[in-house]
C-alpha cells in the first residue's frame, strides 16, 4: 500500500496528477469534438450536396478506423503537415506539436464524428410544426435559432453527448502511446519500475471508474436540468 502513498516514495501523487491530465485532455477533446460535431451536423443538414458528401465521408472514415491509428497519424504526421502548410506561407523551420495537442486533436477529431450524429439527430428531433409556427409569427432566423431550436437541440442532444463524453474519457488511455503522462502511461511506468503490474493497472481502472461514474452523475443532473418544465409522458 505504501507504493500508492503520496510524496516522493509513493506513486499516489503521480497517479492523481495523471488523472488530472486525463481529465484535461478529455475535456479539451470533448469541446473540440463538439465544435467538429456542430460543423458536421450543419454540413449534413445544409442541403448542399458537396457539403453532405464531405460530412458523410468524415463520419464514415473516422468511425471505421481504429482510434490508435488516428493518434499515430496525427502524432507522427501532424507536425509534418503543419510544417508543409506553413512552408506555403513562406515560413520555414520546425513547428512542434506536443503530445497534449496531438491527443486533443486526435480524440476531438474522432469524437467529432460521433457528436455530428448526436447533434444532427437532435436537430431533426425538433418538431417541424414548431419551426413553422415560429416562422408564421415572423421570427427572424437568429431569434428562431435562439428561442426555438437551440434550447431543444441542447436538450435532445445531451444524452448522446453524455455517451460521447464517456467514450472520450476512455479513449484518452490510447494517448499514452505518445508519451503524455496520463493515467495509463503513469500506471505503465509504475508497473515497470516496481514489477507490480496488477496493483498499478487496478489503480488505473479505479481512477477511470471514478471519472466515468462521477461525470455520468454530472450529465444525469444536466439532463434533468435541461428537461425541467417538460411534461413526461
Amino acid at each position: 500500500m505504501e507504493l500508492l502513498s503520496f510524496g516522493d516514495k509513493g506513486w499516489g501523487d503521480e497517479l492523481a496528477l495523471a488523472a488530472c491530465m486525463t481529465l484535461a485532455v478529455a475535456s479539451c477533446a470533448f469541446l473540440l469534438g463538439t465544435v467538429f460535431g456542430c460543423f458536421g451536423a450543419l454540413a449534413k443538414l445544409s442541403g448542399l450536396r458537396a457539403l453532405e458528401i464531405a460530412a458523410d465521408a468524415y463520419t464514415t472514415v473516422v468511425r471505421g478506423i481504429p482510434e490508435l491509428l488516428v493518434i499515430y497519424l496525427l502524432f507522427f504526421g501532424g507536425s509534418g503537415a503543419l510544417m508543409f502548410v506553413a512552408s506555403m506561407f513562406g515560413h520555414t523551420g520546425y513547428i512542434g506539436v506536443n503530445a497534449f495537442m496531438t491527443g486533443v486533436a486526435a480524440i476531438g477529431f474522432v469524437n467529432g464524428a460521433y457528436s455530428t450524429e448526436a447533434i444532427r439527430g437532435a436537430v431533426l428531433a425538433v418538431p417541424k410544426g414548431q419551426i413553422e409556427a415560429a416562422k408564421a409569427y415572423g421570427m427572424p432566423p437568429w431569434t428562431l435559432f435562439r428561442r426555438i431550436l437551440a434550447p431543444q437541440v441542447l436538450r435532445f442532444a445531451l444524452p448522446s453527448l453524455g455517451n460521447v463524453w464517456q467514450l472520450c474519457l476512455k479513449e484518452t488511455a490510447l494517448i499514452s502511446v505518445t508519451g503524455l503522462v496520463e493515467i495509463m502511461r503513469q500506471a505503465t511506468i509504475g508497473a515497470g519500475s516496481t514489477k507490480k503490474p496488477f496493483t498499478f493497472y487496478a489503480c488505473a481502472a479505479v481512477l477511470y471508474l471514478l471519472l466515468t461514474t462521477l461525470s455520468g452523475i454530472g450529465f444525469g443532473r444536466a439532463e434533468r436540468w435541461a428537461e425541467r418544465g417538460v411534461r413526461r409522458s
Binding site: L174, M184, A187, K196, P197, F198, Y201, A205, Y208, T212
Partner: peptide
C-alpha cells in the same frame, strides 16, 4: 463499460501474471 479496454487488456495480460 467504465474502464478503457486498454486497461482491461493490461490487467489481464500483465496484471494476472503478477
Amino acid at each position: 463499460r467504465g474502464t478503457p479496454l486498454l486497461v482491461q487488456i493490461f490487467l489481464i495480460y500483465y496484471g494476472l501474471g503478477q
